[in-house]
Structures are given as C-alpha cells and as structure tokens.
Nucleic acid binder design. Sequence first.
DNA 1: CTGAAAGCGCTTACAG
DNA 2: CTGAAAGCGCTTACAG
Lengths: 344, 344
Amino acid sequence: MEKQKYTIKDIARFAGVSPSTVSRVLDDNPKISEETKETVREVIKKYGFKPLAAARNLARKTTNAIGIVIPHDDVSIYSSSFFHEALKGICSRLADYGYDVLISSGNPTELDAISRLISTSKVDGIILLRSVKDDPNIRHLRSEAFPFVLIGTCLEFDDVCCVDNNNVAAGYDLTEHILSTGKKRIALVGGSDSSVFIIRRLEGYKKCLKSHGIPIDESIIRLGQNTEAYGYDSMTELLNAAAPPDAVIIMDDLAYIGVNRAIVRKQLRIPRDIAVACINESGDTKYAKPALTTVSLDFNALGSCAADKLIGLLRGKQPDEACTYVKHQLALHGSTLEVCGNSN
Amino acid sequence: MEKQKYTIKDIARFAGVSPSTVSRVLDDNPKISEETKETVREVIKKYGFKPLAAARNLARKTTNAIGIVIPHDDVSIYSSSFFHEALKGICSRLADYGYDVLISSGNPTELDAISRLISTSKVDGIILLRSVKDDPNIRHLRSEAFPFVLIGTCLEFDDVCCVDNNNVAAGYDLTEHILSTGKKRIALVGGSDSSVFIIRRLEGYKKCLKSHGIPIDESIIRLGQNTEAYGYDSMTELLNAAAPPDAVIIMDDLAYIGVNRAIVRKQLRIPRDIAVACINESGDTKYAKPALTTVSLDFNALGSCAADKLIGLLRGKQPDEACTYVKHQLALHGSTLEVCGNSN
DNA sequence: CTGAAAGCGCTTACAG
DNA sequence: CTGAAAGCGCTTACAG
C-alpha cells in the first residue's frame, strides 16, 4: 500500500532535470521547451507519477476543492432525482477542472457545515443546492464574501450568482400548450407555494392566461404540498366542484400519483374529460397511461452549469448575468394529446 | 477574504510557547501539562485558529478524507431515499471523526473514479454504495489492498468488509407476520432477481415457508424489475390466475404503485381479499390507504455504520465480522391487519 | 513536560 | 529556457 511511490525529486532525477522543471511541465508552463516537456512527460508516465495534492495545495495556498452541503430536512429536494442528478453534474464538471468536491452533511444545521468548510479553509467555494426565504446560509456566505453559486433563485439579493430552471417559462409553455389543445379551464395542483420555484411556475401560468385574455380563477389553484395525499385531496375537491377543470397542471412530481388516483376514481378519461400535465418528470410519472405530458427539467445540467459558474468566479471572472437559466424540455404525450389508444 | 489569518507560529508567539507545543495541544497530547493546554487553548479560541488541513496532511502523510463514488446508471439505487440517506449517514459520522468526504462522479466509469482517487492519494479509504455481480470495483480495490467498506453484501469474497440490511431476516420476518394473520398463499412481486438484496429477501421468504411446512410455489414469485409497470403487469397476471394469492409481498418500493393499481382495478379489498406488504418503504408507499405494512430499512444507519467500520480499518482494527447487519423495522399496518376502516 | 530543527512534497520568485 | 533556494504551515523524532 505504498501510495506515493515517487516524488517530484525522483522524477527530476530520472529525467535529468530539476524539480522546478518537472513542476512546470506538470503545469504545462509555456516557457518550457517542447523537447524537455516530452522527455519529462514520458518519465512521469512511465512511473505513473501524480503530484501529491496536499503538497501542491500547501505550496499554492489553494484547496482545489469546492464544498456542497446536504440538505437534511427537506424531503422534496431529493425525493425526485434532483439531488442525485445535480450532484452528478457538479462532480463530473468539477473533475474536468481538476477540482475535488467535498460533501458535508448539515450537522446540526447547514449553516454550521458551511461555517466549518470556510473556517477550516477546506474549500475554495461552495455550491448551494437550494435556498429558502431569507436564507441564513446566503447571508453568511455574503457577509464572509465567500465565493458561492446557488442552484435555484434568490429573491432577496439580485447579485447572488445562481443557476436555475426557467420556471416562469416552464409554467408559461405548458399552459400555452394545453390551451392550444382547446382546453379552457386549467387547474394547478401540488407543490408548496412557499417554494420559490413553485411561485415562479405559477407566475408563468398566470402570465400565459393573461396574454390569452383568460381570467384567472384562484379557486382552481391548489398549491400546498408536493405529496400524494395533497394531490389526491385537492384533485378530488376540484372534480367535485360545480365547475370542474378540463385540464390540470401538477406543479411538482410527487403530487402526481394522488392527482391521478383522484381522476381514476372518478373514472374520467384522459385527456378527453381532463387533460393532465406535470412539471418535473420523475419515476412516478414515467409509467403513466396514457403517457404523461411533462416539462422535463435537466438537473444534471443545473449541476454542471453551477460548477462552470463557480469556477468562473474563482478565476475572477465576473459572470455575464447573475442568474443563468438551464433549458427545459416540453415532452408532449397522450395525457394532453388525443392520439394513442387508452390502454389504462 | 483572508482565509488563513493566523498560523501556528502566531499562536505560539501569542501564547508564549513553541509551535511544537501548540501542535501538541491541538492533538491533545497527554504529555503536555494541563496548565499549558489551558493557556494555549484560550489563545487558539481567541484568534479562531484552525490548522490548515493541507499542511497538516502533508506533514502527517495522510489525507483525512474518504471517497465515495456516485453510481451513475442505476436508477433503483437513488430513486428511493437510499442514496440521500446513506450519504447523510456517512458524512455526519465521518465529520465526527474529523474526516472529509470526497465525492466523485463515476466518469466515465466508477472504476475510473476509484483509480483516480487512489492514485492521486486524495483519500485514505473508500465507501462503495453498491456492488454488482463480479464487481470490478471490488476486485480493483482488493488488488490494490486499498481500505474500503461496501454497503451491501459481496457474494464473491467473504473477507470484504460490508454493512448491509439483514435482507434474509427482512424477508423472513415479513413472511412470518403475514402467515400469522392467517394468510396462506403469499406472492412475491418486483425487484430484480439479479440484485443481491432481492435474492436474499427471497431466501428469507423461502426459509420461513419451509419452517412452516408450506410448499414453495414458484408460479407466484415474480421477480423482474423494480418498476411500477412490472408491478402492475405481474400483479394483474397473478390475480387473473386460477389460484390467486391471498397476500403479496412487494420486494422493493417502486413496484408498489403498480401492484396497488392492479389490486384497485380488480376492486379487491385490502387486506380481506389480499394482504399487501412492502419491503423498503419510501415516498410511494407512505400514503397508502389502508396504511401499508412495511419493512423499513434504515439507510442512514447503513451509512454511519459503514463510516464506523472504515475508520476502524484505517486505525488498523480488524473488524469482528466481515459483514455487519443494520436492524430493520417491521411496521405493521392496516394493509395486513384487519383494524382501521378502509377510507380509500 | 517543552523546544529547536528537520522534514513532508510541492511551487515560485529570482537569477542566470 | 532552466535551476537553486526559500517557503507554504504543519508534525515529530530527538534532545534535554
């Protein structure tokens, strides 16, 4: 288990140059002649030499790592594939830049984890996987002037670097599509209205109705929780009302199962009696029959884009815009389109 | 943004001792007098001094970090809360030991990520979040004699350090409970029979039937995939058969929705016509009506236990047993017990 | 119980 | 274009 077999000195000796030169070759320093580089590279390769991170970091006074804190209390953030996908996007992009990703469980709170990461100078920057209203983590990071990027949207400060789905556009596009199929009365179900992303999807929905001259009926907007139970109860109420909707947009994936159950129970046909669409597809929505029209959100891209942006910050590049939007995809299927047979 | 304000030299000067002494106080070295410790600690606290990790690691020739690789292709591993919970367990326990957790996306393969972690000596050990049959990762780690712990069970080598749920017991206990309610014909649905944990749950089921003198009917065992579609199709077939089961155990959470849909469609009463139970509860199973009897698996404990075990290995402690089992919990509810009203 | 000194394996002005 | 030397901030035999 001799981990670090060779040091830069060994390589220098083998290659007949000085350690300084080896170091520069490692860095691809343009001042070194191609000839020397070739020789040294061969030796490096031959012996499988890898510079020791700790030594390099100490000499450079950098950590070459960024930190991530695991949210610990919020089921909705990881119950879909968000957490896993975003993490993957972050890690693989940062690996390209040669950065490590340090992950810390927010113990006892996320703020503690963040303070620890900063004060022990273990990371050069932080990626936040979510934010809440009046977020203490963001406040702390700002007050420390510590480089960070938020995945999500920050309502309080408009200079916070963030990467997000364009939730306004997602809400708008889906509404637009459903209207184009001839439906007139689109209900909204599921997702907490204290979540920023839900608020923004709602915004897009309203904007679209307005632009079509359709009045907004608050009685068919049911934002509460992203759970099956909430979806079932809300949808049941809506369907039992005097003027039931002819379409429903589910605002987040987990509510879908409940909404669908309410519809099945009423023995309604999808999409004839009621069109169904969902923002944020997931395991739950994948096997719907008829296939479910969704807005699919690319969480992996969210992660890699956040990584890009943070690296930019660390290199002193001021971002073009504080918030970068990642493209979403409208996936049109039988639940809003009268095409394939209903094989329930 | 002056991250590292003070060095050990500064603290030594302020405290009127040598850097060596400060270092020893940091380590709580027993040879240092309590008096000196007190003084130095106060200074450390006063200036908020934290030793620079890179310097410490270089001097100690250790990384104080362990690595984790994100599985990238297997939906079933993270679609439940497994990934998130296990990660949390690992991180918070390792933080207690003062270890960092480095996370790497398996890019392009997990094996690449592992090789990278080892060859750049960025971590002292690795925790594997899963294994497959004839696992190349395990083979590589073994051949390098690199310390690692597997979350799961390794069938090939019995000296591999692992932490797992006792899936045999889980299958056994649940079967036992259902038999105790008077049911006789228990079907098994969902979960891939190439997964080790499914194989072991099956083993427990068979063992229990055997011990009760009940013959095993392979025709009511449907192991294939952990998906809603597979659950629905299998359950439908089972219910349409000449001798339908009077109970069903769903072998993994994602198949539950489909199984339930098949039962609802047949308008069967739960548990009177058919008792339903599921191994591994999740978001999908939480809102069932009547409430679902489940074996709940503590993924967080799996993570923290794996952390304990790896730290043990790194400290040269040979583990008492290669495989440690984490306790599961049988949660008995209306889906197998004739108690609460059916509010479906 | 404590300190002076060497060393961990790199990087980087500085000099040539 | 390259090398010698100092330094990054710790730890740890060694000596007392």
